[in-house]
Write a protein that binds this DNA or RNA. Sequence first.
RNA 1: CGGGGCGUGGCGCAGCCUGGUAGCGCGCCUGCUUUGGGAGCAGGAGGUCCUCGGUUCGAAUCCGGGCGCCCCGACCA
Length: 560
Amino acid sequence: MTRLSTYLLPTEKQAPADAEAISHKLMVRAGLVRQLGTGLWTWMPAGWRAHQKVVQIIREELNAIGGQELLMPVLNPGEIWKRTGRYGIDELFKLQDRKGAEMVLAMTHEEVVTTHVAQLVRSYRDLPLILYHFQVKERDEPRPRAGVLRTREFIMKDSYTFDRDEEGLNASYEKHVGAYDRIFERTGLEWYRVESDVGMMGGSGAHEYMAPCAAGEDAVALAPGYAANVEIASADPQPVALPAPLDKPEEVHTPGLTTVEEVAANLGVPHGALLKAYPVIAEGRGLVLVVVRGDHRVNEIKLRNALGAPCRPAQPDEFAQKIGPAGYIGPVGANAPVLLDDAVTDGGYVTGANRPDFHLRGVEPGRDFAFERADVRTVEAGDTVGGNAIRIEAAIEVGNIFKLGTRYSEPLGATYLDESGTSRPIVMGSYGIGPARIVAAAVEQTADEAGIAWPRALAPFELELVSLGRAGSEEQAYAERLYGELRALGADVLYDDRDLAPGQKFADAELLGCPLRITVGKRTLSGGELELQVRRGRETRSVPLDGAAEAVLDLWRTLP
RNA sequence: CGGGGCGUGGCGCAGCCUGGUAGCGCGCCUGCUUUGGGAGCAGGAGGUCCUCGGUUCGAAUCCGGGCGCCCCGACCA
């Protein structure tokens, strides 16, 4: 029974003062979620219904590709995390039991699932396998934020695939691409599948599913036929007009000018005619001088991938001796390997002279300094891919798929015997979806001034029936009857039977955002009609009372 | 981890500077009226002023420690 008079839907007129993101404000105002502590949220009944709708869509599509649902514990022995080398992760919550044994609260379940598979799978005949679960994940986030978008505890769907070899993994991965595409399509979200960084987990391939929205923490680069997280995006640079070349580099006096802006303005050249030198300390390799065009930015993730090792910016005292003084460094004469960004074309550039208050102009890569090439810059709106300009949009990551390889099967001993009796490591993939983020992204993407405007697939209720009549009135009696009929037809109806002013009921209905509102009032009832409001766009329609329940559902089915 | 801000009834806030009876709007409860866009009148309930300590005759207010929460950046397997 979902009569609003007895349902816990704690709506608020005012948003919490500290809320910033639209989804944060509206989800609290609409009574979907309540905060318990930093990054800790309770799902109220209506919010949980939306969450469960997402869960059910995911479940159906994963079952359809042969996924088998199970459930694994949140509380894990620390041992398996030590074996995979993940015990040291800062975000991992750690605790001890009463005997002092080290335990962890799982942030994902590779360790657990792989431990079981190591015990249970013996033969190539047992493969492939797709296992998944919905489970609470715990992460000691450095900074939870934006309501339900980034929390310390959240439910995640994780699937894991187990295959004999790379080819099998590719097939399992493709199955997930198909399932994920269908899942996100069914949610009604606007979404992109983008290429993504494989991160510190290692692995051979990864995509993220991104939902564009203002509160998104990621940025995606998009062009016809191209979609990538800007963390790894690659594009052709916009050209820059270089000054006429010189026979050899020439010093210019640039006292106190240490930024690209200052130097470019002083010399009357575009930012892109400068070379920006960015010294880093790469693990196992030492000092490297990264050089990009003056109007470009070094992309730390692409740089890490290009170097094949983690790196950090070098401190002035770490490069002063080998290169030069901070603010005036450049590749000419630098006593460190130079990594030159692909966007730097041939020609004469302005660079630091490696002595205070001087720059060089007419510096030509190759002629004046030796280098290694790599693509290490962050792409920008207007760069091109295949001749098409890219645009950059903020988005929230709602899912990811990842080829793990043997990153977990090897340390945990998950092997199988092939036809020849040879023991081989199982090749794994992992695939996550955050239902809470899908819910929040739907709110972000559909909200208007009045509140949420759910896609049909995710709305907490399919219909909201608003009765304007008082107890004992004709309208009330009709609304009761209609409520019964709609339920008998299988509809998921929220019935606002509260004794409140119409304005309050309308405002609450629009805030909660069910796709279709049915209004039963004296005015339309006496006219032999039932009034409907389509939430998205808030346009009003009416249907005759005769056969009204069916007509309502017919209309509902046509909504987005 | 760096920077900034905040903690007063369910929500939003004032009061703090300049110490002296804890207030406002919304919400909530009771009654009557009202019912197509957040109603009116009357009556009422509800607060360890985050916490611990200090100063003081007296602390929401001043001082110190702690805790909690938010935002920006770093980080985000």
